[in-house]
Design a protein around this nucleic acid. Structure first.
Lengths: 221, 221
DNA sequence: CGCTTTCTTACGGGAAACCGTAAAGCCGCT
DNA sequence: AGCGGCTTTACGGTTTCCCGTAAGAAAGCG
């Protein structure tokens, strides 16, 4: 069962709504904070003094409002929280819609659920809570197919290095120099050309511009 | 005084929070909808049957969920509402942060207030309601800073057409044909080259790839 | 070690993009 | 109509990119 919940969300209205949904679900203790640093502090105290939290609901992106923070967003908060309390359940509640980013949350950060801020997000929150109560992960509907199917082409770290250089405005002919600087291999211009050519062919793209646009859209770079 | 309010906001949680803030302010009648079309319908009925609404609180961007809608967002809803009821007060509540867009809301659409979804948005909502009750417009506090600090380069519709074609994989040399098809002028290859060159220079970009990446990142295309 | 396989690099010809210059078209004005 | 200013287009030379071929390097294996 989930009895003690911490909400980390900088938007006051979003925070408020999550609180309300939790109330309606009859959660005993509902704490909320507006900064990641405060969230970590709360988790630390709860671990020390007991009882610790059952669930952390957090946003991904926190806006900088001038007050310097150690943790600048959910992607920093999540691993930090897991260090303090490995068994803490984590539900991400964010407007993020890039499949690659959401997929990474489950794969790399091993979060327990994701609810996207969208039309029926309150209902989705309740559904997610039900899953989490049963110790099940909650995947957003539109992601379930993606996660199961293998048709997600994998970009290697080499690919991503190339794409980032291109998106940073580095000319193809100059890329080998950059790769050598970072000890990335292969680094020959021919290899760069070949790999890019393959990436385009892989997705039936005609130009590098299209490739960059695609990768930006999916949050790969 | 503001006694009758309509909330148009597709995100369930945001809608909920606005309702709650309105309740706390003691508003008599609080109606809420999740689609622009429904909002317009409500306004029309209220105008016919009286009393009409004192205030419309609306988001800018509504997500398409498959149900076909006449009005696809706040920018369509606002003028349509004003046609039905010219004296209707309008408060925009959105995450939009581009100064040019917000400025346009006041200048072109003559909205009565703007509250950005951000850290203290509930508090800002209350402040805005106070201003509106006194028949004053409500400008976001941070709008001045943003307007001063950020250089607001605007992409023309021609620019966006170009960028979209590029991001779709159309080669530069083929772009004139596409432009002529859509009766977009100018359409010469030279004009295309010149404009792209200017766009790159404007942002100190070296390549088209970087330009596309930038625009994707900002959601311009 | 020699051999094959795979990965990486070098090279060259042709296509596309880039960029400056100049010509042609358009519009408002007298 | 004639003129000036501005926009758009046309045309080259240069650079960069694209892509096929082949040479070279590294890794696996009997």
């Amino acid at each position: 069962m989930i009895n003690k919940v911490l909400i980390a969300e900088d938007h006051e209205t979003s925070n408020l709504s999550i609180q309300k949904v939790m109330e309606e679900l009859g959660i005993d203790q509902i704490d909320y904070v507006y900064y990641c640093d405060d969230a970590l502090k709360q988790i630390r105290q709860a671990v020390e003094r007991k009882p610790s939290y059952d669930l952390l609901i957090t946003d991904l992106y926190f806006e900088d409002d001038g007050q310097p923070q150690q943790l600048t967003g959910g992607l920093q908060l999540i691993p930090a929280a897991r260090v303090l309390q490995p068994d803490l359940k984590i539900l991400v509640f964010s407007a993020e819609n890039k499949p690659a980013t959401i997929q990474q949350l489950f794969k790399k950060f091993e979060v327990d659920g994701y609810v996207r801020k969208a039309r029926s997000d309150a209902r989705e929150l309740r559904l997610a809570m039900e899953s989490l109560s049963n110790n099940q992960r909650y995947f957003p509907r539109n992601l379930r197919q993606i996660l199961n199917s293998k048709n997600t082409f994998e970009f290697s770290s080499f690919d991503i290095a190339l794409l980032k250089l291109l998106a940073d405005g580095v000319r193809q002919k100059d890329i080998p120099a950059y790769l050598q600087e970072q000890n990335i291999r292969p680094s020959g211009l021919s290899s760069v050309e070949k790999r890019l050519s393959l990436l385009r062919e892989e997705h039936s793209f005609a130009t590098n511009e299209q490739l960059i646009g695609f990768c930006k859209e999916l949050g790969i770079i």
